[in-house]
C-alpha cells in the first residue's frame, strides 16, 4: 500500500469513527433509559444469584460427591439380583462412556450369534 493510499485510508477511517461516535453519543432518551435499566437488571441478578465461580471450592466438591452418592445408591437399591437385568444401569453407563459407535451395541446379539457360529464351525 502506498503512503498516499494509506493516508487516504486513515482519513476515511477517522471520519467513520467520528460518525459512529456521534451516533453512540446521540442515542435517544428512550434507548438510553432502556440501556440503563438493562445494566441495573444485570447487576441486580448478579447480587441475587451468586456466580458459580464465586462459590467456595469445597461447596462445589460436596455437591458433586452428593450427586455421585445418590446415583450409586439408586443403582444399588433398584437392582434385582435374581434376573439378568441387574446389570442394566451399569451397562448403560458403560455404553455411554464407551468409544464405540452406539450401533455396535444395538447389534450385540448379532455379534454374539456370529461368535457362536464361528466357535461351532471351528
Amino acid at each position: 500500500m502506498t503512503q498516499d493510499n494509506n493516508d487516504h485510508e486513515n482519513v476515511f477511517l477517522d471520519r467513520v469513527r467520528r460518525t459512529l461516535d456521534d451516533s453512540a453519543d446521540n442515542l435517544d432518551a428512550r434507548t438510553l433509559s432502556q440501556l440503563t435499566q438493562a445494566r441495573h437488571r444485570a447487576l441486580e441478578k448478579a447480587k441475587s444469584k451468586p456466580s458459580i465461580h464465586r462459590r467456595p471450592f469445597w461447596l462445589s466438591l460436596a455437591g458433586l460427591v452428593t450427586a455421585a452418592a445418590v446415583v450409586f445408591l439408586a443403582i444399588f437399591l433398584t437392582r434385582d439380583p435374581s434376573g439378568p437385568q441387574h446389570y442394566s444401569a451399569i451397562e448403560d453407563v458403560e455404553i455411554l462412556a464407551a468409544s464405540e459407535n452406539p450401533e455396535f451395541f444395538a447389534d450385540m446379539e448379532f455379534y454374539a450369534w456370529l461368535a457362536e457360529e464361528m466357535e461351532d464351525a471351528g
Partner: peptide, 11 residues
Amino acid sequence: MLNLVKRYGAK
C-alpha cells in the same frame, strides 16, 4: 450484560 456479570464477573 447478564452473561458477562453471571459468568465472568469474578474474572
